[in-house]
Design a binder for these strands. Structure first.
Lengths: 199, 199
DNA sequence: TGCGCCTTACATACCGGGTATATATACCGA
DNA sequence: TCGGTATATATACCCGGTATGTAAGGCGCA
């Protein structure tokens, strides 16, 4: 529901038409998470259907100006007042993938952790470089960037934690489910190979 | 695309029917992210449509057993070998919300940061409590839990960082965009009020 | 025996998010 | 004037997610 409320919030400051809303959103988040224009129009249509905005005809050009209604303001106030719950968040694909990898004895989980780590490390460096080039008056964009940096750092810490857990497990019960002979019916080799983590 | 690949991965170890797949998935992730049974069947239907699995008739009961095809194994190998990119991730609703809040002068961003912080703190404590009650042989579930803990910790650090940035900003350019007189055309008071953050 | 209830198992309707594409106008430079 | 780019709206389609429907089998109990 994040687009829905974002549009409401943007409309609270000032009425606007679809294209304008996308532009505002993108300057906010510096165009990470590019917002597809189609979503803006479909979401606006739903908001109008639900009575949260009204699309007042055209301005001097043929553009459709949307503005908040009373219920729209109520809905927005509710959003501002309630925290973003952890249950509201989408499934974490990486966590699931690693969970699957460490469970399946035919998968080389250590190699997967390595490739993931170096990839995350690389994007962490990209983000840090990006941060150095932001103007100090773009506060919102800067905070979004730093959010991604904090998340990437947490991810690296977690991956390291997974690796040491894996080693401890291998020590605790060595060669579980991994037959010594080359008699796998389904080889399923993990082709993942780390390019080497910087650190 | 995380369900799609999760089902492929689960089917790689052993052929199964839909209901069974959900059960396996839920023991993996300890039923955070509960997987709706409907999604399993629709996803299986799409996988069969795309030739990645085949639904071989019925077993001794009337159940439809799915198993991986060659292309299915290829697709799965590709998934294992490629890291989860940061661009593949969904929009972060919290980051967007805070970005919107700090940009809109009519919103009390500090209050929102406070409520969010105490909420996240609360779930962090819940997660830590949960972790204490996990058996040591449930490795996958434990790692998923710890992933959520690491993320919650990063979120708290980020929220604190936002708060200090906000204070610095307020000092750098005091009362920007906030007219001294009570002449707002649209009041839009943030009703958010912190319940008081621990620590 | 039969009624109700739970679990297992599959299926479908519906909504929102996300992407790609179609269409039209305006402007600008070669 | 032709083509490319920016502006602006709209629509088709897929996937993820939720709720609901349906049906068979097992279990308890009056």
């Amino acid at each position: 529901m994040s687009i829905r409320h974002s549009l409401l919030a943007l409309l609270a400051s000032d009425s606007a038409y679809g294209y304008q809303l996308r532009a505002r959103f993108e300057t906010l988040t510096g165009s990470v998470w590019p917002l597809n224009i189609g979503q803006v129009y479909t979401t606006l249509a739903r908001l109008e259907r639900d009575g949260l905005v009204v699309g007042a005809g055209s301005d001097d050009e043929g553009r459709i100006i949307y503005r908040l209604t009373g219920p729209g303001r109520d809905e927005l106030a509710l959003w501002w007042s309630s925290p973003v719950g952890r249950s509201a968040r989408p499934r974490d694909e990486l966590a699931i993938k690693i969970a699957l990898a460490v469970t399946d004895p035919t998968i080389d989980a250590a190699a997967i952790l390595q490739t993931q780590r170096s990839d995350t490390m690389r994007s962490l460096q990209d983000l840090t470089k990006l941060k150095r080039h932001t103007e100090q008056d773009e506060v919102a964009w800067r905070l979004v960037l730093e959010s991604m940096i904090f998340n990437a750092e947490a991810e690296i810490r977690w991956l390291d934690h997974c690796e040491s857990t894996l080693l401890r497990e291998a020590h605790r019960r060595p060669e579980v489910g991994r037959p010594p002979g080359p008699s796998e019916p389904t080889p399923q080799n993990a082709t993942a190979r780390g390019t080497g983590a910087p650190a």
